[in-house]
Amino acid sequence: MFFFERFGATIALIKMDVKHFKDYLSWLYYQYLLITCSYVLEPWEQSIFNTVLVTAIAMVIYSSYVFIPIHVRLAVEFFSGIFGGQHESTVAPMS
């Protein structure tokens, strides 16, 4: 019995949280509209603007995902070539 009561309370809490979260999201979207001036754009202009913005962000994320590891690896190799110690294979064996 106690369990069910607690369960019910949790459900209510989650529901409230979800509602809260939705409100927060809609408030965030409203702020986005105001700051980017999409608020005063006509719907078709708004969709163009959102598409362009989302595409640009997606491309930035994708290209950073693809290229940053490569660049980092190249940079590490480059700098280790300058500052790092000599490679094992270049060290002449002394016996």
Binding site: L33, L34, I35, T36, C37, S38, Y39, V40
Partner: peptide, 8 residues
């Protein structure tokens, strides 16, 4: 300040 906020 912001132009959209004038209307809003």
């Amino acid at each position: 300040y912001m132009p959209a906020k004038i209307g809003a």
